[in-house]
Amino acid sequence: MFVTAAIAAEAASEGEKVFPPFDSSTFASQLFWLAITFGFFYWFIAKVISPRIGEILETRQDRIAGDLDMARDLQEKADEAHAAYEQELAQARTTAGEIGQKARDKAKAEAEAERQKVEAELATKLEEAESRIASIREKAMAEVGSIATDTTAQIVDQLIGTSVTKAELTKAVGAARG
């Protein structure tokens, strides 16, 4: 190398040692030991270190990916369980509504039946009462004829002082009553 030679010459002329990095007498030794040490180091990295650390990192990556998958599965299951719960809840709500409606309907029907029964009873009682009133009235009306006959007999007796026969009286009263 030109530069090396120039510096070496300069150094030599001053009677000093060559600037060490440009001292070509050490090159062979440095290259030789560099080849040995770096050669070993390269071999060691390629055969031992690189596969080992690569494997560690891969294992970790796989594990993380696996864990994430598992978490996703569990999440899905949880979602499903939640959905099933919701559905069941909704169903229970519907059932409860139905049961309530049925109970309400039944109660209503019973009340209605009770009411009808009572009404029917009242109606029969009313009828009975009416028929009794009618019979009483009839009886009274029937008696009205005899009372009128008696009363008429007395009035006629008082007024004109004659007694009229019962048959005539009855005929006259019946004619008057229509």
Partner: peptide, 13 residues
């Protein structure tokens, strides 16, 4: 060739 084990070699090792 001068293949001496030097201080440089030592620090390479």
């Amino acid at each position: 060739l001068d293949l001496s084990f030097t201080n440089s070699s030592l620090f390479m090792v």
